[in-house]
Design a protein around this nucleic acid. Structure first.
Length: 287
DNA sequence: ACCCAGGGTCGTC
DNA sequence: GACGACCCTGGG
């Protein structure tokens, strides 16, 4: 049964910015400029027409509640952008470029596996792998005569052997995904404890125990999932590049270690470092 | 054809 | 702490 929800007068919401800033892998653009994606047991289409955002699709519950939660609609991004804009002109320019970015509240398990797959990988291939895993191990949902597949649950993905995963194109990440799946399967408390803990460092240390999760992937999980730690500052090749170009232009031979970058992030952007990172990331990649 | 990079992590020195 | 290996794919 199709549902619909319309959001009016929302400045900080631009589908392209949200879905192409690298936080998610299951949203695809349609010919009309709208995007369709799968999350949980929902298939949703999102379009923005004249300052109105239109959500429609098939949902596991009330579409308004589901979208308010997933798209982080209750957070005041105008205020966040105002605060970050005052930090410096680079920030101001990148925010102008990605003004409609919002950080999604994605399911923890899916975010963990997705970003383990993202290691030393490119976005088209990451999307392909996740799509194949969903098709093979997830559940089918039909909407408007098209087939969509949910991201596999822990139990569903645990049916895949290391060899099965390799066949789906994971490469050397097969063992990491397999072992992390086993941990989630056999230790039900692991996920529960992550969700109950509120301290950023403590959650990060727990995540680092998982095979395939290093500092970068851990920060992506902390920022992009329902854990929603906005101070998490994922350090990747692109953010190293942009920080080098903006703030260390005269010191080309200076090595930007994670410690230096984390310190800079904390001092400059504070509790909003993760959101600042997303504006800079999107700006550097797209502009 | 060949090389390189891609939202890094892991094992080894 | 630094360094190389690592599956695979698309683009130059």
């Amino acid at each position: 049964m199709e549902q619909k929800y319309i959001l009016k007068n929302c400045d900080s919401f631009e589908p392209k910015h949200i879905f192409e800033c690298g936080q998610c892998f299951r949203w695809n653009e349609n010919e009309d400029g709208s995007y369709t994606g799968v999350f949980g047991n929902n298939v949703i289409n999102v379009n923005k027409i004249n300052q109105e955002v239109i959500f429609k699709g098939v949902c596991d519950g009330d579409i308004k509640n589901i979208c308010e939660n997933y798209f982080d609609l209750k957070r005041d991004y105008e205020k966040i952008k105002y605060e970050l804009s005052n930090i410096d002109n680079y920030m101001k320019e990148s925010i102008k470029y990605g003004s409609g970015i919002r950080i999604l509240n994605q399911e923890l398990w899916e975010t963990v596996i997705s970003f383990i797959i993202s290691a030393n990988n490119n976005i088209p291939r990451i999307k392909g792998i996740i799509e194949r895993l969903s098709k093979k191990y997830g559940n089918k949902i039909v909407w408007q005569n098209k087939e969509y597949y949910t991201f596999p649950t822990v139990e569903e993905l645990s049916r895949a052997s290391i060899e099965d995963l390799r066949k789906q194109g994971l490469g050397f990440r097969d063992k990491r995904v397999y072992e992390t799946t086993q941990i989630f399967l056999k230790n039900k408390d692991f996920e529960k404890k992550l969700k109950e803990e509120i301290n950023y460092e403590k959650i990060k240390n727990s995540l680092l125990e998982l095979p395939g999760v290093g500092p970068k992937v851990a920060d992506c999980i902390l920022l992009f999932s329902t854990l929603k730690k906005l101070e998490a500052f994922p350090i990747d090749v692109w953010i190293k590049r942009v920080v080098q170009e903006l703030y260390f232009k005269e010191e080309k031979d200076l090595k930007l270690t994670n410690d230096v970058l984390n310190k800079l992030a904390k001092e400059k952007y504070g509790e909003l470092a993760g959101i600042a990172q997303q504006y800079l990331f999107y700006w550097r990649r797209e502009a």
